[in-house]
């Protein structure tokens, strides 16, 4: 019985180590893998991903900063400027062939290209809201910025709801 128990204990520890290694490997795999000779589509998809990360980070900066009692106006203006630059370029981030076929983790839906007119309109609507946010930030009126945040977020969501794949976890 004692021998059996110790075997069981060894097995349990072994399984624990196995699980730890496996989960470590999963984490390692989830890091962006080095790209070997990425296709133009994959390059575009990767760059798009990075740009959306920057856009999200900048919007988050605006939101976090304006939630403070006394926001740093320069920080808000700089982040809004970044958003404006990115949002202006956004329509160019979606060359044909840069969808899931080029990057498996891409969340770009096929209707971005099949419904190009609708997508352009949604992107333009978002661009307009971001430019208003930028104008408010330039004016230094933090209440105007706060008031424009909801419309801006809504325009992100409107496009995401229609043209972004819900990632399965």
């Amino acid at each position: 019985m004692a021998v059996f128990m110790s075997k069981g204990a060894v097995l349990a520890v072994g399984m624990g180590i196995g699980v730890a290694i496996a989960s470590g490997a999963t984490v390692a795999n989830s890091q962006p893998a080095p790209k070997a000779a990425a296709s133009p589509g994959a390059k575009a998809a990767n760059m798009r991903h990075e740009n959306f990360e920057k856009l999200g980070e900048a919007f988050k900066t605006v939101i976090d900063e304006t939630k403070k009692g006394e926001p740093n106006k320069a920080v808000v203006a700089r982040a809004a400027q970044t958003m404006n630059t990115l949002a202006t370029a956004l329509p160019t981030w979606f060359p044909r062939g840069s969808g899931v076929e080029a990057r498996a983790k891409s969340e770009a839906k096929a209707n971005i290209w099949t419904d190009a007119a609708g997508f352009s309109a949604a992107a333009a609507a978002s661009q307009l809201q971001v430019s208003k946010l930028n104008q408010a930030a330039i004016s230094g009126d933090m209440n105007a910025v706060r008031a424009q945040i909801r419309a801006t977020g809504g325009s992100c969501k409107a496009c995401h709801d229609k043209y972004r794949l819900e990632k399965k976890s």
């Binding site: 919007f59 992100c156 995401h160």
Partner: peptide, 26 residues
């Protein structure tokens, strides 16, 4: 956690970056 639009986040999300907040949302 931070929402994909960066618009909504948990009350402590100002302590993490957008990327970290997205990972925590996952």
């Amino acid at each position: 956690a931070v929402d994909v639009d960066a618009y909504q986040g948990g009350p402590l999300s100002h302590m993490v970056s957008f990327d970290q907040g997205r990972r925590l949302a996952e």
